[in-house]
Amino acid sequence: MSKRYELRFSGAGGQGLVTAGIIMAEAAAIIEGRYAAQSQSYGPEARGGASKSEVIISDEPIDYPKATAVDACLALTQQAADKYAGGIKPGGVLLIDSDFVKREPEGDFRVVKFPIIRTARDEVGREIVANVVALGAMVALTGIISREAGEQAVVARVPEAFIELNKKAYNTGFEKVKALLA
């Protein structure tokens, strides 16, 4: 593993991508005790518009806090895929929601796909946890943090009444990608 690893979570405003980034950063920085910097960029809209959240994870202090060559990118919408997949470095990986990203971005990276939002709605039971399904999938895809650290960070972040729902979402996403990679 190189010392600096860059993740990007992208989609539309309101899909919980900033939260997914925060949970990833908490797992790395608080639970695993490494260095992490989470940042975001979004438009003035409260909902909609292209939104992204970036997480840099490193074993050394992080200087530049934004992505420069993305190792792993998530795109939940076509607009986000079109806008943000270009930053993926050669040999990197892109995870897309196959229901919403019909035109796959092309480049020197691997594309992994499954219907993320549909999985949240039909298999987990609530569409609102699609971001946590995506987080579990990104953990399985990258291996950059341990499965347990990710789950612990999810549990620490969500209200008590929603812990089981979110654990299910996280693990469903993790298993989906594990099966795809097998």
């Binding site: 925060i22 950063a25 920085a29 608080i30 260095y35 992490a36 910097a37 989470q38 940042s39 975001q40 992080i62 806090p65 934004k66």
Partner: peptide, 9 residues
């Protein structure tokens, strides 16, 4: 906006 919104340990 960047270091105001950025999260770090």
């Amino acid at each position: 906006e960047i270091n105001g919104h950025m999260r770090e340990r």
